[in-house]
């Protein structure tokens, strides 16, 4: 029993590791992508849109297969399961993050920029004092939402042979099928709580931000 719990924890660590690395990459690349997406250049806009739609339309599962098997097939480059997972989740996360950043900046009214400038603020001052704080407040709840979605979706990576928490759970259930036929419910319950422990604090942070925002906006 004690051993099984440790096994689950080590599986959870794989889940967390893949999630955290992917989320970190997504935040950085997505922010850059978002900045690019606000470009007025038609071609740039269309390219970004195409990227975003392709990533959204194709299930993450398919992406995992493409990167894990397909890329190796085509180029001979051999990614491990975890590396493939990080690549796929970064491709997905960056796309979604980019769209969030784009939407947030486009939602800031033009007169916020103009009145900043007409007060004599320089562009860097305008972004630091006026635009970014507003953008960040609107962005954070959505980013946290995206992060929890990414964490939950990492369960798919067992398909390409990465033993994350759900896979470990299955192994434990299978190994004890004859001795403890009802083990499944307890193992899954434990996994449920593990996901909960990771995602719930994130939701709480998101809710706290929204609340604070509503107070200052007086809604």
């Amino acid at each position: 029993m004690g051993n099984n719990f440790l096994r689950l924890l080590s599986g959870l660590w794989v889940t967390v590791r893949i999630s955290l690395i992917s989320i970190a990459f997504s935040l950085v690349l997505g922010t850059l992508l978002g900045a690019v997406m606000t470009s007025r250049n038609r071609v740039v806009k269309v390219l970004c849109r195409v990227y975003l739609e392709i990533v959204r339309i194709m299930p993450q599962l398919v992406w995992l297969f493409i990167v894990f098997f397909g890329v190796t097939r085509l180029t001979g480059a051999n990614f491990g399961g975890e590396t493939s997972a990080v690549i796929v989740f970064t491709i997905w996360g960056a796309a979604e993050m980019g769209d969030l950043v784009r939407g947030t900046f486009e939602a800031i009214p033009r007169h916020q920029f103009e009145s900043s400038l007409s007060l004599g603020l320089t562009k860097p001052q305008m972004y630091i004092s006026i635009i970014f704080p507003q953008a960040l407040r609107n962005l954070l709840p959505n980013v946290i939402n995206l992060a929890t979605r990414m964490i939950k979706t990492t369960a798919l990576v067992s398909i390409i042979g990465v033993t994350e928490v759900l896979k470990v759970g299955k192994q434990i259930i299978d190994a004890n099928r004859f001795e403890f036929p009802n083990a499944a419910i307890w193992v899954y319950a434990a996994i449920f709580f593990m996901y909960f422990l990771i995602c719930f604090p994130l939701s709480m942070i998101s809710r706290a931000i929204v609340k604070k925002q509503q107070r200052s906006e007086g809604e």
Binding site: P109, Q112, S115, L119, G120, L121, Q134, E217
Partner: peptide, 30 residues
């Protein structure tokens, strides 16, 4: 621009700052 004050038709106060901070932002920063 520091010598030209402009007020627009739309409510262009900065929503994330208090009234006082809205007013003191540019004298302090600029």
């Amino acid at each position: 621009r520091q010598k030209i004050g402009m007020v627009f038709q739309s409510y262009d106060l900065f929503p994330h700052l208090t009234v006082l901070k809205n007013i003191t932002l540019s004298p302090i920063k600029v």
